[in-house]
Write a protein that binds this DNA or RNA. Sequence first.
DNA 1: GTCCATGCAAATAGTTTGCACCCGG
DNA 2: CCGGGTGCAAACTATTTGCATGGAC
Lengths: 138, 138
Amino acid sequence: METQTPDRSHVAELLRQHDIIPTHQRLVIAKALFSRRQHLSADQLLALVNQEHSEVSKATIYNTLNLLEKKGLVREVIIDPDRVFYDTYTIPHHHFFDVDSGMLMDIESEELRVEGLPKLPPGMIQEGVDIVVRIRHQ
Amino acid sequence: METQTPDRSHVAELLRQHDIIPTHQRLVIAKALFSRRQHLSADQLLALVNQEHSEVSKATIYNTLNLLEKKGLVREVIIDPDRVFYDTYTIPHHHFFDVDSGMLMDIESEELRVEGLPKLPPGMIQEGVDIVVRIRHQ
DNA sequence: GTCCATGCAAATAGTTTGCACCCGG
DNA sequence: CCGGGTGCAAACTATTTGCATGGAC
């Protein structure tokens, strides 16, 4: 089940555990992000955070997202040429992408896997595999 | 084997076959693009086209790439948050992405496939599957 | 008081738009 | 001539940088 609007101290603890100083802006951002499992672009997050009154600047949204990614709290998903999504579900998994609406959905199946992967170019190691299934309305 | 620097009339024919009026700018762009199988960003293509003397504007590069994509002559590949790549090899296939250098390589294997794909959300149809294997130096 | 991390205004980079111009009929 | 298609300057949008500020020791 999803966590609903986690309280400040809970989020603060999460940030501290990942070596991030829990400032006011970061708490507001993290609260919005981790209120549920979701995929948000920087712009969507900005709107969400400032919906009541302006609290955080655009630049801080970007910098905080980059920080959270570096610390492993969110994962970048690059599918849409227009914007990067940040996924609050950081365990490796794959995605459905609705090309009409631009919506991104997790593929829950753990059965999903790649078969027949050729050997890598010499001297290279595999860092990860991303599978995106593009879908649209019938 | 790759085609080497196709001549103007050959490229012009290719464009005409795809309902594109072969203007000077488009010929210069298409010649550079289709000289070999490759992955180029708009910026890389701009540099390539204008390396001797400035012949085509940035906007025209973008507009022409969009046109070629619409007409099925190139394929967009979205992997790097910083730029869209255009792939001159339009048959469906997958990619290695070198996260250090930002280089994109085709996966030649036809064995490669996805297993265990769950059923799609109701009312949706599958448009395609993209697999990206992220790799880096050991 | 010093230092370093932080937050944000301003700068930058990638892409699209709107319109002047040109070419074919 | 006239009209539609083209090419590009300028506008726009997403993201990063550089620096003034403020809190911790």
